[in-house]
Design a protein around this nucleic acid. Structure first.
Length: 502
RNA sequence: GGUAUCGUGGCCGAGUGGUUAGGCACAGGUCUGCAAAACCUGCUACAGCGGUUCGAAUCCGCUCGAUACCUCCA
Protein backbone atom coordinates (compact mmCIF):
# COMPACT_ATOMS: atom_id res chain seq x y z
CA UNK A 1 0.00 0.00 0.00
CA UNK A 2 1.11 3.56 0.56
CA UNK A 3 4.72 3.35 1.62
CA UNK A 4 4.86 6.95 2.79
CA UNK A 5 2.64 6.14 5.69
CA UNK A 6 4.15 4.49 8.68
CA UNK A 7 2.41 2.40 11.26
CA UNK A 8 3.13 3.38 14.84
CA UNK A 9 2.33 1.07 17.70
CA UNK A 10 2.37 1.64 21.43
CA UNK A 11 4.89 -0.85 22.70
CA UNK A 12 4.33 -1.85 26.30
CA UNK A 13 8.01 -2.75 26.54
CA UNK A 14 9.18 0.80 25.95
CA UNK A 15 6.04 2.61 27.07
CA UNK A 16 6.17 4.59 23.85
CA UNK A 17 4.80 4.60 20.37
CA UNK A 18 7.34 3.16 17.97
CA UNK A 19 7.40 2.83 14.20
CA UNK A 20 6.50 -0.72 13.32
CA UNK A 21 8.93 -2.53 11.07
CA UNK A 22 8.52 -6.26 10.70
CA UNK A 23 11.53 -8.49 11.20
CA UNK A 24 11.04 -9.95 7.76
CA UNK A 25 9.98 -7.52 5.05
CA UNK A 26 6.35 -7.99 4.16
CA UNK A 27 5.66 -10.61 6.83
CA UNK A 28 4.27 -10.20 10.32
CA UNK A 29 4.19 -12.77 13.10
CA UNK A 30 1.63 -12.05 15.80
CA UNK A 31 0.89 -14.10 18.89
CA UNK A 32 -2.12 -13.35 21.06
CA UNK A 33 -2.94 -15.07 24.34
CA UNK A 34 -6.22 -16.85 23.80
CA UNK A 35 -8.91 -18.00 26.18
CA UNK A 36 -8.86 -20.61 28.89
CA UNK A 37 -11.68 -22.92 27.93
CA UNK A 38 -13.02 -23.91 31.31
CA UNK A 39 -16.03 -21.59 31.26
CA UNK A 40 -18.14 -19.46 28.92
CA UNK A 41 -16.15 -16.72 27.28
CA UNK A 42 -16.07 -13.42 29.17
CA UNK A 43 -17.32 -10.24 27.47
CA UNK A 44 -13.93 -8.71 28.20
CA UNK A 45 -12.32 -11.52 26.27
CA UNK A 46 -14.48 -10.57 23.35
CA UNK A 47 -13.20 -7.02 23.44
CA UNK A 48 -9.60 -8.18 23.47
CA UNK A 49 -10.08 -10.52 20.54
CA UNK A 50 -12.09 -7.97 18.59
CA UNK A 51 -9.28 -5.47 19.15
CA UNK A 52 -6.66 -7.87 17.88
CA UNK A 53 -8.94 -8.86 15.03
CA UNK A 54 -8.97 -5.25 13.88
CA UNK A 55 -5.19 -5.10 14.13
CA UNK A 56 -4.94 -8.32 12.14
CA UNK A 57 -7.33 -6.98 9.52
CA UNK A 58 -5.47 -3.69 9.21
CA UNK A 59 -2.11 -5.40 8.87
CA UNK A 60 -3.62 -7.56 6.12
CA UNK A 61 -5.06 -4.44 4.53
CA UNK A 62 -1.62 -2.85 4.53
CA UNK A 63 -0.50 -5.79 2.45
CA UNK A 64 1.41 -7.77 5.04
CA UNK A 65 1.35 -11.52 5.06
CA UNK A 66 0.40 -12.13 8.65
CA UNK A 67 0.70 -15.33 10.64
CA UNK A 68 -1.69 -14.79 13.50
CA UNK A 69 -1.37 -17.36 16.26
CA UNK A 70 -3.90 -17.43 19.08
CA UNK A 71 -3.77 -20.28 21.53
CA UNK A 72 -6.45 -22.24 23.32
CA UNK A 73 -5.49 -22.90 26.90
CA UNK A 74 -6.93 -26.24 27.86
CA UNK A 75 -4.55 -27.16 30.64
CA UNK A 76 -2.07 -25.79 33.07
CA UNK A 77 -3.82 -23.12 35.06
CA UNK A 78 -4.17 -23.71 38.74
CA UNK A 79 -7.03 -22.62 40.91
CA UNK A 80 -6.53 -21.07 44.33
CA UNK A 81 -6.36 -24.43 45.98
CA UNK A 82 -3.82 -25.69 43.51
CA UNK A 83 -6.22 -27.73 41.48
CA UNK A 84 -6.08 -27.69 37.74
CA UNK A 85 -8.82 -25.52 36.33
CA UNK A 86 -9.79 -27.95 33.67
CA UNK A 87 -9.95 -30.75 36.18
CA UNK A 88 -12.09 -28.65 38.50
CA UNK A 89 -14.52 -27.85 35.74
CA UNK A 90 -14.67 -31.50 34.89
CA UNK A 91 -15.42 -32.55 38.43
CA UNK A 92 -18.25 -30.06 38.75
CA UNK A 93 -19.87 -31.02 35.49
CA UNK A 94 -19.05 -34.72 35.71
CA UNK A 95 -17.34 -34.64 32.38
CA UNK A 96 -14.04 -35.68 30.93
CA UNK A 97 -11.60 -32.75 31.03
CA UNK A 98 -11.33 -32.77 27.26
CA UNK A 99 -15.09 -32.73 27.04
CA UNK A 100 -15.15 -29.53 29.04
CA UNK A 101 -12.42 -28.05 26.88
CA UNK A 102 -14.24 -29.03 23.72
CA UNK A 103 -17.55 -27.62 24.89
CA UNK A 104 -16.16 -24.22 25.74
CA UNK A 105 -13.87 -24.16 22.71
CA UNK A 106 -16.90 -24.59 20.49
CA UNK A 107 -18.72 -21.92 22.47
CA UNK A 108 -15.75 -19.62 22.10
CA UNK A 109 -15.62 -20.14 18.36
CA UNK A 110 -19.33 -19.48 18.04
CA UNK A 111 -18.87 -16.23 19.92
CA UNK A 112 -15.92 -15.19 17.78
CA UNK A 113 -17.99 -15.88 14.69
CA UNK A 114 -20.84 -13.79 16.09
CA UNK A 115 -18.42 -10.92 16.51
CA UNK A 116 -17.20 -11.53 12.97
CA UNK A 117 -13.56 -12.00 13.91
CA UNK A 118 -11.35 -13.68 11.35
CA UNK A 119 -10.02 -17.03 12.51
CA UNK A 120 -6.33 -16.94 13.39
CA UNK A 121 -3.85 -18.61 11.08
CA UNK A 122 -3.02 -21.16 13.74
CA UNK A 123 -4.95 -21.90 16.91
CA UNK A 124 -2.73 -24.25 18.89
CA UNK A 125 -3.87 -26.03 22.02
CA UNK A 126 -1.70 -26.39 25.08
CA UNK A 127 -2.54 -30.09 25.39
CA UNK A 128 -1.39 -30.63 21.82
CA UNK A 129 2.05 -29.24 22.63
CA UNK A 130 3.17 -31.11 25.69
CA UNK A 131 6.38 -32.44 24.05
CA UNK A 132 7.31 -28.91 22.98
CA UNK A 133 6.77 -27.68 26.51
CA UNK A 134 8.84 -30.48 27.99
CA UNK A 135 11.59 -29.63 25.54
CA UNK A 136 11.48 -26.03 26.59
CA UNK A 137 11.84 -27.02 30.23
CA UNK A 138 14.88 -29.02 29.19
CA UNK A 139 16.31 -26.06 27.31
CA UNK A 140 15.78 -23.82 30.30
CA UNK A 141 17.45 -26.36 32.61
CA UNK A 142 20.33 -26.83 30.18
CA UNK A 143 21.02 -23.12 30.36
CA UNK A 144 20.96 -23.26 34.13
CA UNK A 145 17.72 -21.44 34.86
CA UNK A 146 15.63 -24.37 36.03
CA UNK A 147 15.90 -26.62 39.02
CA UNK A 148 14.01 -29.72 40.04
CA UNK A 149 12.37 -30.27 43.40
CA UNK A 150 10.46 -33.47 44.07
CA UNK A 151 9.45 -33.96 40.49
CA UNK A 152 8.50 -30.33 39.85
CA UNK A 153 10.71 -27.90 37.98
CA UNK A 154 10.98 -24.22 38.87
CA UNK A 155 12.35 -21.26 36.99
CA UNK A 156 15.17 -19.58 38.89
CA UNK A 157 14.16 -15.95 38.63
CA UNK A 158 16.94 -14.66 40.91
CA UNK A 159 19.71 -16.27 38.92
CA UNK A 160 18.12 -15.26 35.65
CA UNK A 161 17.92 -11.67 36.82
CA UNK A 162 21.55 -11.64 37.92
CA UNK A 163 22.78 -12.99 34.61
CA UNK A 164 20.37 -11.01 32.45
CA UNK A 165 19.99 -7.72 34.26
CA UNK A 166 17.05 -5.56 33.26
CA UNK A 167 15.02 -8.28 31.57
CA UNK A 168 12.80 -9.57 34.37
CA UNK A 169 10.31 -6.90 35.40
CA UNK A 170 10.95 -4.67 32.41
CA UNK A 171 7.57 -5.22 30.78
CA UNK A 172 5.49 -4.81 33.90
CA UNK A 173 7.72 -2.17 35.47
CA UNK A 174 8.51 -4.26 38.48
CA UNK A 175 11.69 -4.38 40.52
CA UNK A 176 12.52 -7.90 41.58
CA UNK A 177 13.59 -7.01 45.10
CA UNK A 178 10.44 -5.04 45.75
CA UNK A 179 8.40 -7.84 44.29
CA UNK A 180 9.69 -10.29 46.81
CA UNK A 181 9.01 -7.98 49.71
CA UNK A 182 5.52 -7.28 48.47
CA UNK A 183 4.57 -10.86 47.91
CA UNK A 184 1.70 -11.73 50.12
CA UNK A 185 2.36 -13.88 53.11
CA UNK A 186 0.59 -16.94 51.87
CA UNK A 187 2.77 -16.92 48.78
CA UNK A 188 6.05 -16.49 50.59
CA UNK A 189 5.88 -19.94 52.00
CA UNK A 190 5.83 -22.02 48.88
CA UNK A 191 8.25 -24.45 50.37
CA UNK A 192 9.72 -26.16 47.35
CA UNK A 193 10.93 -23.00 45.73
CA UNK A 194 14.35 -21.57 46.43
CA UNK A 195 12.93 -18.10 46.13
CA UNK A 196 9.37 -16.75 46.32
CA UNK A 197 9.68 -15.13 42.89
CA UNK A 198 10.46 -18.44 41.21
CA UNK A 199 7.63 -20.03 39.31
CA UNK A 200 6.80 -23.55 38.18
CA UNK A 201 7.53 -24.65 34.65
CA UNK A 202 6.63 -28.29 35.34
CA UNK A 203 4.36 -29.45 38.11
CA UNK A 204 4.30 -32.93 39.52
CA UNK A 205 0.78 -34.28 39.66
CA UNK A 206 -0.83 -34.97 42.97
CA UNK A 207 -3.29 -37.76 43.59
CA UNK A 208 -6.56 -36.89 41.89
CA UNK A 209 -5.09 -34.77 39.11
CA UNK A 210 -6.52 -36.03 35.85
CA UNK A 211 -4.81 -34.09 33.08
CA UNK A 212 -1.30 -35.42 33.40
CA UNK A 213 1.55 -36.41 31.15
CA UNK A 214 4.82 -38.25 31.50
CA UNK A 215 7.97 -36.18 31.67
CA UNK A 216 11.59 -36.81 32.63
CA UNK A 217 10.84 -35.39 36.08
CA UNK A 218 7.45 -36.77 36.98
CA UNK A 219 3.99 -37.51 35.79
CA UNK A 220 2.50 -34.05 35.84
CA UNK A 221 1.60 -31.03 33.78
CA UNK A 222 3.33 -27.92 32.39
CA UNK A 223 3.55 -24.65 34.30
CA UNK A 224 1.06 -21.85 33.92
CA UNK A 225 3.01 -19.71 31.49
CA UNK A 226 4.92 -22.24 29.49
CA UNK A 227 2.51 -23.03 26.69
CA UNK A 228 2.66 -19.55 25.19
CA UNK A 229 6.46 -19.56 25.23
CA UNK A 230 6.61 -22.98 23.61
CA UNK A 231 3.91 -22.43 21.01
CA UNK A 232 5.01 -18.93 19.97
CA UNK A 233 8.52 -20.30 19.47
CA UNK A 234 7.25 -23.26 17.49
CA UNK A 235 5.07 -21.30 15.09
CA UNK A 236 6.66 -17.86 14.94
CA UNK A 237 10.27 -18.47 15.83
CA UNK A 238 12.38 -17.49 18.82
CA UNK A 239 11.92 -13.82 18.02
CA UNK A 240 8.82 -12.47 16.32
CA UNK A 241 7.03 -9.19 15.70
CA UNK A 242 4.01 -8.79 17.95
CA UNK A 243 2.79 -10.39 21.14
CA UNK A 244 -0.57 -9.34 22.45
CA UNK A 245 -3.01 -9.92 25.24
CA UNK A 246 -5.10 -8.24 27.89
CA UNK A 247 -3.16 -5.96 30.17
CA UNK A 248 -4.03 -8.03 33.17
CA UNK A 249 -1.72 -10.65 31.69
CA UNK A 250 1.28 -8.35 31.82
CA UNK A 251 2.23 -9.68 35.18
CA UNK A 252 3.01 -12.36 35.90
CA UNK A 253 2.04 -14.18 32.71
CA UNK A 254 3.87 -12.16 30.08
CA UNK A 255 6.77 -11.33 32.34
CA UNK A 256 7.32 -15.01 33.01
CA UNK A 257 6.85 -15.84 29.37
CA UNK A 258 9.65 -13.46 28.46
CA UNK A 259 11.86 -14.98 31.14
CA UNK A 260 11.17 -18.49 29.85
CA UNK A 261 11.96 -17.57 26.27
CA UNK A 262 15.12 -15.79 27.30
CA UNK A 263 15.97 -18.66 29.56
CA UNK A 264 15.52 -21.20 26.79
CA UNK A 265 17.21 -19.42 23.89
CA UNK A 266 18.97 -16.37 25.23
CA UNK A 267 16.90 -14.00 23.14
CA UNK A 268 13.83 -11.81 23.51
CA UNK A 269 10.57 -13.25 22.14
CA UNK A 270 8.53 -10.36 20.73
CA UNK A 271 9.66 -6.96 19.45
CA UNK A 272 6.31 -5.36 20.20
CA UNK A 273 4.07 -6.10 23.16
CA UNK A 274 0.54 -4.82 22.72
CA UNK A 275 -1.94 -4.81 25.57
CA UNK A 276 -5.66 -4.21 25.42
CA UNK A 277 -7.47 -2.61 28.30
CA UNK A 278 -10.37 -3.75 30.42
CA UNK A 279 -14.07 -3.48 29.84
CA UNK A 280 -15.98 -1.95 32.74
CA UNK A 281 -19.64 -2.28 33.59
CA UNK A 282 -21.13 0.95 34.91
CA UNK A 283 -17.71 2.21 35.85
CA UNK A 284 -16.62 -0.88 37.73
CA UNK A 285 -14.74 -4.03 37.01
CA UNK A 286 -16.98 -6.89 36.05
CA UNK A 287 -17.18 -9.30 38.90
CA UNK A 288 -19.39 -12.29 39.21
CA UNK A 289 -19.15 -12.35 42.97
CA UNK A 290 -20.16 -8.66 43.24
CA UNK A 291 -23.03 -9.15 40.83
CA UNK A 292 -21.50 -6.53 38.54
CA UNK A 293 -21.49 -8.80 35.55
CA UNK A 294 -23.00 -9.35 32.16
CA UNK A 295 -22.33 -12.17 29.71
CA UNK A 296 -22.16 -11.85 25.94
CA UNK A 297 -25.30 -13.95 25.66
CA UNK A 298 -27.17 -11.67 28.06
CA UNK A 299 -26.09 -8.79 25.85
CA UNK A 300 -27.59 -10.47 22.81
CA UNK A 301 -30.84 -11.42 24.54
CA UNK A 302 -31.25 -8.29 26.65
CA UNK A 303 -31.78 -10.52 29.66
CA UNK A 304 -29.90 -8.47 32.24
CA UNK A 305 -30.77 -5.74 34.73
CA UNK A 306 -27.92 -3.66 33.33
CA UNK A 307 -29.46 -3.13 29.91
CA UNK A 308 -32.86 -2.03 28.67
CA UNK A 309 -32.83 -4.08 25.48
CA UNK A 310 -30.89 -6.60 23.45
CA UNK A 311 -27.75 -5.48 21.65
CA UNK A 312 -26.32 -7.30 18.69
CA UNK A 313 -22.69 -8.35 18.31
CA UNK A 314 -22.18 -5.76 15.60
CA UNK A 315 -23.50 -2.97 17.78
CA UNK A 316 -21.05 -4.03 20.44
CA UNK A 317 -18.26 -4.22 17.91
CA UNK A 318 -19.14 -0.70 16.77
CA UNK A 319 -19.19 0.38 20.40
CA UNK A 320 -15.66 -0.96 20.85
CA UNK A 321 -14.50 0.89 17.73
CA UNK A 322 -15.38 4.21 19.32
CA UNK A 323 -12.68 3.78 21.94
CA UNK A 324 -8.98 3.05 21.65
CA UNK A 325 -8.05 -0.53 22.48
CA UNK A 326 -5.62 0.68 25.13
CA UNK A 327 -8.26 2.60 27.09
CA UNK A 328 -10.70 1.22 29.57
CA UNK A 329 -14.15 1.12 28.06
CA UNK A 330 -17.20 1.56 30.22
CA UNK A 331 -20.42 -0.20 29.35
CA UNK A 332 -23.64 1.59 30.21
CA UNK A 333 -27.05 1.19 28.69
CA UNK A 334 -27.16 4.83 27.65
CA UNK A 335 -23.84 4.55 25.84
CA UNK A 336 -24.90 1.34 24.11
CA UNK A 337 -28.11 2.99 22.95
CA UNK A 338 -26.05 5.77 21.42
CA UNK A 339 -23.75 3.25 19.75
CA UNK A 340 -26.69 1.34 18.35
CA UNK A 341 -27.93 4.44 16.57
CA UNK A 342 -24.46 5.33 15.40
CA UNK A 343 -23.97 1.85 13.99
CA UNK A 344 -27.26 1.83 12.11
CA UNK A 345 -26.62 5.27 10.75
CA UNK A 346 -23.22 4.25 9.46
CA UNK A 347 -24.65 1.20 7.71
CA UNK A 348 -27.47 3.23 6.20
CA UNK A 349 -25.06 5.93 5.09
CA UNK A 350 -22.94 3.35 3.33
CA UNK A 351 -25.95 2.07 1.43
CA UNK A 352 -26.81 5.58 0.31
CA UNK A 353 -23.21 6.17 -0.69
CA UNK A 354 -22.87 2.95 -2.67
CA UNK A 355 -26.10 3.76 -4.49
CA UNK A 356 -24.86 7.11 -5.77
CA UNK A 357 -24.42 7.12 -9.55
CA UNK A 358 -20.99 8.02 -10.84
CA UNK A 359 -21.52 10.76 -13.38
CA UNK A 360 -18.37 10.76 -15.45
CA UNK A 361 -19.80 13.11 -18.05
CA UNK A 362 -19.97 16.01 -15.62
CA UNK A 363 -16.29 15.72 -14.76
CA UNK A 364 -14.26 18.63 -16.09
CA UNK A 365 -10.94 17.32 -14.88
CA UNK A 366 -10.49 19.81 -12.10
CA UNK A 367 -10.34 19.18 -8.40
CA UNK A 368 -13.04 20.87 -6.37
CA UNK A 369 -12.83 22.02 -2.78
CA UNK A 370 -15.12 19.13 -1.87
CA UNK A 371 -12.74 16.74 -3.59
CA UNK A 372 -9.91 18.05 -1.49
CA UNK A 373 -11.96 17.88 1.70
CA UNK A 374 -12.98 14.30 1.00
CA UNK A 375 -9.48 13.19 0.13
CA UNK A 376 -8.13 14.89 3.25
CA UNK A 377 -10.65 13.08 5.44
CA UNK A 378 -9.71 9.77 3.82
CA UNK A 379 -6.07 10.49 4.59
CA UNK A 380 -7.01 11.36 8.17
CA UNK A 381 -8.85 8.07 8.53
CA UNK A 382 -5.75 6.17 7.47
CA UNK A 383 -3.54 8.34 9.63
CA UNK A 384 -5.77 7.41 12.55
CA UNK A 385 -5.35 3.71 11.92
CA UNK A 386 -1.62 4.17 11.45
CA UNK A 387 -1.47 5.85 14.83
CA UNK A 388 -1.67 2.74 16.97
CA UNK A 389 -4.89 1.50 15.38
CA UNK A 390 -6.92 4.51 16.47
CA UNK A 391 -10.30 3.31 15.27
CA UNK A 392 -12.05 6.17 17.07
CA UNK A 393 -10.33 8.72 14.86
CA UNK A 394 -10.92 6.69 11.71
CA UNK A 395 -14.57 6.28 12.59
CA UNK A 396 -14.96 10.00 13.20
CA UNK A 397 -13.58 10.61 9.69
CA UNK A 398 -16.05 8.14 8.21
CA UNK A 399 -18.90 9.90 9.95
CA UNK A 400 -17.84 13.18 8.40
CA UNK A 401 -17.36 11.58 5.01
CA UNK A 402 -20.80 10.06 5.30
CA UNK A 403 -22.51 13.42 5.28
CA UNK A 404 -21.21 13.91 1.72
CA UNK A 405 -23.10 10.82 0.65
CA UNK A 406 -26.37 12.21 1.99
CA UNK A 407 -25.75 15.68 0.63
CA UNK A 408 -25.19 14.24 -2.83
CA UNK A 409 -28.15 11.90 -2.55
CA UNK A 410 -30.44 14.73 -1.39
CA UNK A 411 -29.13 17.06 -4.09
CA UNK A 412 -28.04 19.42 -1.36
CA UNK A 413 -24.72 19.17 -3.08
CA UNK A 414 -24.64 19.11 -6.86
CA UNK A 415 -23.27 15.92 -8.39
CA UNK A 416 -20.66 17.94 -10.22
CA UNK A 417 -19.20 19.16 -6.90
CA UNK A 418 -17.40 15.86 -6.46
CA UNK A 419 -15.21 14.40 -9.17
CA UNK A 420 -16.22 10.90 -10.30
CA UNK A 421 -12.90 9.39 -9.34
CA UNK A 422 -13.12 10.94 -5.88
CA UNK A 423 -16.61 9.55 -5.46
CA UNK A 424 -15.41 6.13 -6.54
CA UNK A 425 -12.51 6.34 -4.11
CA UNK A 426 -14.89 7.40 -1.35
CA UNK A 427 -17.13 4.42 -2.05
CA UNK A 428 -14.22 2.02 -2.03
CA UNK A 429 -12.65 3.45 1.11
CA UNK A 430 -15.95 3.45 2.96
CA UNK A 431 -16.63 -0.16 2.13
CA UNK A 432 -13.08 -1.16 2.92
CA UNK A 433 -13.07 0.51 6.31
CA UNK A 434 -16.46 -0.66 7.44
CA UNK A 435 -16.31 -4.26 6.30
CA UNK A 436 -12.66 -5.18 5.77
CA UNK A 437 -10.89 -3.20 8.47
CA UNK A 438 -13.50 -2.62 11.14
CA UNK A 439 -14.98 -6.02 10.42
CA UNK A 440 -18.58 -4.85 10.74
CA UNK A 441 -21.46 -6.57 9.02
CA UNK A 442 -24.75 -5.05 7.98
CA UNK A 443 -27.16 -6.96 10.16
CA UNK A 444 -30.18 -5.67 8.29
CA UNK A 445 -28.93 -7.72 5.34
CA UNK A 446 -28.60 -10.87 7.37
CA UNK A 447 -32.24 -11.86 7.23
CA UNK A 448 -32.00 -13.39 3.77
CA UNK A 449 -34.84 -13.38 1.25
CA UNK A 450 -33.62 -10.00 0.07
CA UNK A 451 -35.11 -10.42 -3.38
CA UNK A 452 -38.54 -11.23 -2.04
CA UNK A 453 -38.52 -8.42 0.46
CA UNK A 454 -37.31 -5.93 -2.11
CA UNK A 455 -40.10 -6.95 -4.44
CA UNK A 456 -42.72 -6.64 -1.73
CA UNK A 457 -41.41 -3.30 -0.60
CA UNK A 458 -41.37 -1.95 -4.13
CA UNK A 459 -45.02 -2.90 -4.53
CA UNK A 460 -46.07 -1.47 -1.17
CA UNK A 461 -44.24 1.80 -1.74
CA UNK A 462 -45.75 2.05 -5.19
CA UNK A 463 -49.25 1.75 -3.73
CA UNK A 464 -48.38 4.37 -1.16
CA UNK A 465 -47.00 6.68 -3.85
CA UNK A 466 -50.29 6.44 -5.72
CA UNK A 467 -52.22 7.20 -2.56
CA UNK A 468 -50.06 10.21 -1.96
CA UNK A 469 -50.55 11.60 -5.46
CA UNK A 470 -54.27 11.38 -4.81
CA UNK A 471 -53.69 13.03 -1.43
CA UNK A 472 -55.14 9.97 0.23
CA UNK A 473 -53.18 10.61 3.45
CA UNK A 474 -55.16 8.02 5.33
CA UNK A 475 -53.92 5.18 3.17
CA UNK A 476 -50.48 6.67 2.88
CA UNK A 477 -50.03 7.00 6.63
CA UNK A 478 -51.58 3.64 7.31
CA UNK A 479 -48.91 2.05 5.15
CA UNK A 480 -46.16 4.07 6.77
CA UNK A 481 -47.34 3.40 10.31
CA UNK A 482 -47.92 -0.25 9.58
CA UNK A 483 -44.44 -0.65 8.19
CA UNK A 484 -43.02 1.24 11.15
CA UNK A 485 -44.73 -1.20 13.46
CA UNK A 486 -43.12 -4.00 11.48
CA UNK A 487 -39.73 -2.38 11.98
CA UNK A 488 -39.37 -0.70 8.63
CA UNK A 489 -38.81 3.02 8.29
CA UNK A 490 -40.13 4.79 5.21
CA UNK A 491 -38.10 7.74 4.01
CA UNK A 492 -39.58 10.25 1.61
CA UNK A 493 -36.99 12.14 -0.36
CA UNK A 494 -36.78 14.33 -3.40
CA UNK A 495 -35.82 11.39 -5.55
CA UNK A 496 -38.61 9.18 -4.33
CA UNK A 497 -39.16 7.00 -1.32
CA UNK A 498 -36.70 4.57 0.20
CA UNK A 499 -36.90 2.30 3.17
CA UNK A 500 -34.68 0.74 5.81
CA UNK A 501 -35.03 -1.80 8.53
CA UNK A 502 -34.73 -0.53 12.06
C1' G B 1 0.34 -1.22 51.54
C1' G B 2 3.38 -1.19 46.68
C1' U B 3 3.27 -0.22 41.29
C1' A B 4 0.91 1.62 36.99
C1' U B 5 -2.89 3.93 34.09
C1' C B 6 -6.66 7.35 33.98
C1' G B 7 -10.20 11.57 35.52
C1' U B 8 -12.75 15.65 28.90
C1' G B 9 -19.32 18.95 27.77
C1' G B 10 -26.26 15.92 29.62
C1' C B 11 -24.05 10.57 28.21
C1' C B 12 -20.02 7.68 25.70
C1' G B 13 -15.42 8.81 23.98
C1' A B 14 -10.78 10.81 20.52
C1' G B 15 -7.00 14.37 21.20
C1' U B 16 -2.00 15.53 24.47
C1' G B 17 1.54 22.61 24.38
C1' G B 18 -1.57 27.46 20.40
C1' U B 19 -6.21 25.19 15.44
C1' U B 20 -13.94 21.74 14.77
C1' A B 21 -12.78 15.26 17.14
C1' G B 22 -16.87 12.04 16.35
C1' G B 23 -21.37 9.58 18.04
C1' C B 24 -25.84 9.96 21.11
C1' A B 25 -29.06 13.55 23.51
C1' C B 26 -30.96 18.67 23.30
C1' A B 27 -32.56 23.52 20.76
C1' G B 28 -33.48 26.30 16.19
C1' G B 29 -33.77 26.03 10.85
C1' U B 30 -34.24 23.71 5.68
C1' C B 31 -36.97 19.85 3.31
C1' U B 32 -42.03 17.34 3.84
C1' G B 33 -49.24 17.02 3.01
C1' C B 34 -47.74 16.00 8.26
C1' A B 35 -43.81 13.20 9.97
C1' A B 36 -39.38 10.44 9.83
C1' A B 37 -34.71 10.45 7.62
C1' A B 38 -31.12 13.68 5.76
C1' C B 39 -28.71 18.42 5.66
C1' C B 40 -27.45 23.31 8.13
C1' U B 41 -26.78 26.10 12.70
C1' G B 42 -26.36 26.36 17.89
C1' C B 43 -25.17 24.50 22.84
C1' U B 44 -21.21 23.16 26.07
C1' A B 45 -15.63 20.47 28.31
C1' C B 46 -11.06 19.38 29.84
C1' A B 47 -11.55 16.56 38.63
C1' G B 48 -9.51 20.43 42.33
C1' C B 49 -5.33 23.52 43.86
C1' G B 50 -0.52 25.32 42.81
C1' G B 51 3.72 25.72 39.30
C1' U B 52 6.53 25.95 34.32
C1' U B 53 5.43 28.74 29.66
C1' C B 54 4.20 34.29 25.55
C1' G B 55 0.45 30.39 25.73
C1' A B 56 -1.70 24.08 29.12
C1' A B 57 -7.18 20.01 28.75
C1' U B 58 -2.09 18.70 27.02
C1' C B 59 4.28 19.44 30.89
C1' C B 60 5.56 19.32 36.57
C1' G B 61 3.90 18.93 41.88
C1' C B 62 0.18 18.06 45.47
C1' U B 63 -4.94 16.67 46.78
C1' C B 64 -9.26 13.94 45.74
C1' G B 65 -11.51 10.05 42.84
C1' A B 66 -11.63 5.71 39.46
C1' U B 67 -9.61 1.32 37.34
C1' A B 68 -5.94 -2.37 36.92
C1' C B 69 -1.83 -5.34 38.47
C1' C B 70 0.86 -7.24 42.79
C1' U B 71 -3.07 -13.92 43.30
C1' C B 72 -5.90 -17.91 37.94
C1' C B 73 -7.91 -13.66 35.23
C1' A B 74 -8.77 -10.48 28.29
Amino acid sequence: MNTERSLKLYNSLSGKKEIFKPLHEGHVGMYVCGPTVYYDVHLGNCRTFVSFDIMYRYLLHLGYRVRYVRNITDVGHLTDDGEDRMAKGARVAQLEPMEVAQKYTVGFHDMMRAFNTLPPSIEPRATGHIPEQIEMVQDIMARGYGYERNGSVYFNVRKFDQENPGVYGHLSGRVLDELLVESRDNLKSQDEKDDPADFAIWMKARPGDIMVWKSPWSVGFPGWHLECSAMSTKYLGQTFDIHGGGNDLKFPHHENEIAQNHGACGCAPAKFWLHTNMLLLEGKKMSKSEGNFITPVQMFTGDSPFISKAYTPMMLRFYMLQAHYGSQLDITDEALLAAEKGYRKLMETNKVLQGLPADATAYDGSESEHDRAILALIEDAYAGMDDDFNTAVALACLNELGSYAHKLANKQLDASAVSPWVLERLKTVFNTFIFDIFGLQDESDAAGDEGTVDGLMALILDIRANARTQKDWGTSDKIRDGLAAAGIAVKDGKEGTSWAKN
